[in-house]
């Protein structure tokens, strides 16, 4: 049942990325390219998402627990630390380099259904996994040394 819930949420998310064409890296880059032929679509994708999520989360805040899990895992941190800002800055450079962030890159794997293999998402996701692993390695190594 939990797995089914995650699958449905993932499906809706992927459908949204496809409908809004966020799986097209050129569409994303056209938003980020403020000095070129600017396409503001991405701002409306975020706006459309927030228009649903903001009232949705506001209502869920009133509940004690989610339907299929013991507790809501709302983020609790409020401090602005250097790691947050440096990480976001680094992330933005990678996003602007190729036009992929994690969700669209994973979803774009399905574009190979068109009949020809579209290599970009596979290359990106493989490299991203290396990046995830590198951060995991760096943090576990550091905490092992600190401990």
């Amino acid at each position: 049942m939990k797995g089914f819930a995650a699958l449905i949420a993932g499906l809706l998310f992927g459908l949204g990325l496809a409908v809004s064409q966020m799986v097209n890296p050129l569409k994303v880059l056209a938003f980020l390219d403020v000095f070129g032929h600017w396409d503001p679509s991405l701002a409306l994708v975020m706006g459309g998402a927030i228009a649903v999520t903001m009232p949705g989360f506001w209502l869920l805040r009133r509940l004690d627990r989610p339907a299929l899990a013991p507790r809501f895992e709302w983020p609790t941190r409020r401090d602005l630390d250097r790691k947050l800002l440096a990480g976001a800055a680094i992330f933005g450079v990678g996003w602007g380099l190729a036009g992929y962030c994690p969700g669209p890159a994973i979803g774009a794997a399905a574009l190979s259904l068109r009949g020809t293999v579209f290599l970009e998402p596979f290359v990106f996701v493989a490299a991203m996994a290396v990046g995830f692993f590198a951060w995991h390695w760096l943090t576990t190594r550091r905490s092992a040394t600190d401990g």
Binding site: L12, G36, D39, I50, P66, P70
Partner: peptide
Amino acid sequence: MTEFTPYSALIGGALIGLAAVVLMALMGR
């Protein structure tokens, strides 16, 4: 170069938002 697509952007965005609400409501994530 891509063209501004306001309706599909809003509808797709709303689906993404719905996915986030569904995941929080059911799984708390």
